[in-house]
Design a protein around this nucleic acid. Sequence first.
DNA 1: CGAAACATCCGCCACT
DNA 2: GTAGTGGCGGATGTTT
Length: 347
Amino acid sequence: VAGRACPEGASLNGSLPRTVAAVANQGVLTFDLAVPCEVFGYDRSDIVRPWYRFFVVAADPPPLRTNTGFTMDTPYRIEDLERADTIVIPGWSDTETPPSPELISALQSAYERGARLVSICIGTFVLAATGLLDGRTVTTHWRHADQLQQRFPKLKVDPRVLYVEDGRLFTSAGTAAGIDLCLHLVRLDYGYEIANTVARRIVMPPHREGSQAQYIEQPVTPEALGGGVKAACDWALRHLSVDITVKQLAREAAMSPRTFARRFREVMGLTPHDWLLRQRIRLVQRYLESTDDPVELIAEKAGFGSAATLRHHFQERLEVSPLAYRRTFRASRGPGDPRAGRGPAHL
DNA sequence: CGAAACATCCGCCACT
DNA sequence: GTAGTGGCGGATGTTT
């Protein structure tokens, strides 16, 4: 794990707007480019002022033809990157097309003057070409992780995470993980509550971890789980409200505790107890969002021994108290919001 | 909040 | 020799 340094630029001083630029090349992946457009480029000044300034830079002479066949134009060029303090490289056209020398040096000098560099999906290949990622922990789309590691041996490629924050360098896995990463940046800039509100606006589950977490584990698909581990997880999810020990889980998985702990780590990327806690907190979030139950009752229903224990973990992981979480979640449920009313919160 | 009791995790190592 | 298993114990984290 790369340095445990505090997130840099964790909060916005005064009211200077952050300026975010996304870079598109010929053949850019439509969805990946749309991610920063949606998160940063959409005017959200009704949530907080000032919102970001955002523009799209053409790395090739426009018009640019996207990978889905339509063309687009933008007045901004590589030299405009010097005005950005966050630069996003969304899914580049492909892993074979190297960035131009101008783009490389623009990225290098942006980094030197303190800008944050962000990549989505195979955009990591572009950042890697600048040399700035050498020795850093990074990620990319799982299908290209091996290729990235081979081409840039100095990187520490971790294909198991949704995104990685390493100093001012941010990389994310396949397409949709880019949304998580962009929301993470919003959280660094504006705090958890604002990021949460944005997540709700774009109908993303707001269950992400606190800002000190450098790694966000990828949600594993049940199919990817080893047999016994999956059985234990299923069992645990059905019994979340009662006390569960790792020893019991091991029994459900038909393994010794030691082997179970090892298998679990390999498959899930975190320890059994940590996973359990996460599931419980997610359940608590759902209750807070969709009921008026007191925290004591929720603690009981989610398998926490006491409300104090629940508050402790909730605050630590989400950096908000349970009641504050409920308040912001409900206060921002306004007219026009697709989740108005009292629908069940999704997992 | 802190202290004390308790659970978990992980390197180590012996064993199959 | 290699690969996987599982017990042990101390550091670390959790719960009361």
